[in-house]
Nucleic acid binder design. Sequence first.
DNA 1: GTGTATTGTGCAAGCGCTTGCATGGTAAGC
DNA 2: GCTTACCATGCAAGCGCTTGCACAATACAC
Lengths: 343, 343
Amino acid sequence: MHRSTADLKTLALELGLSQSTVSRALRAHPGIPETTQRRVIAAAEAAGYRPNARARSLATGRAETIGLIFPLERLQLPETNFVDVLAGISTVVTRRNYSLLLSPFADDEAAVLRRLASTKAVDGVIITRPLVDDPRIALLNQLRLPFVVHGRSEVAEPYSFVDTDNDNAFERLTSLLLDYGHRRIVLVNGLAQFRYVDARAASFRRAFAARGLTPLPDAIEFVSMTEATGYETAMRRLAGPERPTAFLCGSVFQARGVYRALREHGLEVGRDISVVCHDDGVRGVSAADFTPPLTATSTSIRGAGEKLAATLIDLIERKVAEPLRTILPFELILRDSVALARP
Amino acid sequence: MHRSTADLKTLALELGLSQSTVSRALRAHPGIPETTQRRVIAAAEAAGYRPNARARSLATGRAETIGLIFPLERLQLPETNFVDVLAGISTVVTRRNYSLLLSPFADDEAAVLRRLASTKAVDGVIITRPLVDDPRIALLNQLRLPFVVHGRSEVAEPYSFVDTDNDNAFERLTSLLLDYGHRRIVLVNGLAQFRYVDARAASFRRAFAARGLTPLPDAIEFVSMTEATGYETAMRRLAGPERPTAFLCGSVFQARGVYRALREHGLEVGRDISVVCHDDGVRGVSAADFTPPLTATSTSIRGAGEKLAATLIDLIERKVAEPLRTILPFELILRDSVALARP
DNA sequence: GTGTATTGTGCAAGCGCTTGCATGGTAAGC
DNA sequence: GCTTACCATGCAAGCGCTTGCACAATACAC
């Protein structure tokens, strides 16, 4: 059907116009009369013409592509919210006519960032899981590669981010448990290097402090976000000296493990012991489907992905100058997993 | 530290060489003496120089990027083996220094394919879930865009593919059940439009035919690959007139649903009733972890992803001329979910 | 009828690289 | 000492597009 060698030159020749005019007509530049434009567009359509992305991006300096950098294992591990973030990003990228370059890395993330910057393959990148003091932010600023962070860091550098409202969510969950009379609460948190883990710990302590209370000295468990560690942590704490009356879990995966441990101990959630958690809305693992349904703060991690992509693209297109900062709201959903504390 | 405007011209100027020589030295072209090459490489390193990917790919005609085309919802649904395929692809793409462009589509896949081809954004693409008679194959051949298919189709066109050995796996699983005396076997298959579903049905029937037996007239259920449909299908069949003595499931997701249904009916798998399945090795859903452990043919869908990427890159680099066809082996793993048929 | 805007289009440079071919210099052959 | 070969490097075109500026033609004002 169409020649596959449809390039600007040929098209211009056929139309008896110059390349400039054709190029401008196709991009609806001002100064091109409507009749010409219509003619050109019709011819382009007929020829199945699309500008060569490489040439265009070389000429314009923009690739209309964004990169997502992540450790390869986030795709390999079963318990991850990464795919949901990816789904959100994909949606917006597609909607805004950008492309998404996946850049997994095995160990040296900085090298990947450097390559992406000097190679000019993308107009900007999304980075994830920031550390408390994350060096990537300074690096990206220095490389002048637009970026947005999924989460926050404590660095002084300016940067755009999209984050969950950890500061309030965990205070709220903790308060709820305190309202029900719980004092021996265990926070099953994430690994300490990440900033959100910090924020959640602080948020937890704030809730206690607000009522002049003190959490258990070993109230906070810094463990990974899996069912297995949730289980293991709960088992350990139940066997310990000061048996907790409530668990607050950082993820539904951990909560699953906690539920299993409690069940094994013959404890009924929502009667003998209480559990709450933060629910990112990961595909297929909803707090609502637990038995009994799990009280949780709920957000949409996929929504975060969408916002990340939208923010980055806005940044790239300079619709904005300074850092864009988004904190996504959450909703506390009461279900059946909380009971009054038993003495 | 480095100038971020490190381009070939500047580098060549600094070295007192021409762009051609520097370019050649960096790519270890023959004819460049080792001393020069070393000098150039050292200077490039010091300057943090990387060739601009856009310019290079415009000049060479190759982007060193492959595309993965898929319906957006495959990222949104919880029960999918897509992420595992993606993980495999990512691994190999990274290892071979290619980039991966994700191209989700909402409805018009052909349009995406056309755009990718004329836009020259990728050197080749991977397409998934071929239909029995899949039009994409002819389209891609016509567009002259290298591609490899995950799965097979029945079209006459030549094409490269990587596929699971459905033809033998399902015959094998069926034979196993027949060996145990089962006759009233239900195959919980996938949706009929896909070629692999066809292949599995045929494979199933072959096993019966090989012994001069006939399956139930309604032996094969063409349903989606989810826990919910597995459950629903099993419930329906258990309530029906000719209660099956065994279920053969196309995926672990379906098998999960079937297990649940059987449990609700008070049937003990591996004693009162038998179940086998095909296990793609999806992250976090292993047949080995079922209770009781589920007998299954096992393959690695992630391995398929790796092979897909490797095949496509080989194709692109013309290490081979004609279609590459891979059928991945499987292993039958006997566990505890099969018992002798009860009359 | 002259002068000035305005309009539609084209020229040519340039984005940053690769590569076929040419060139000058040195080594080898006899 | 002259030819032939080879070696190291450079020239310049070209990949397919965009875009600043120039230009001719027409429209408008007076």
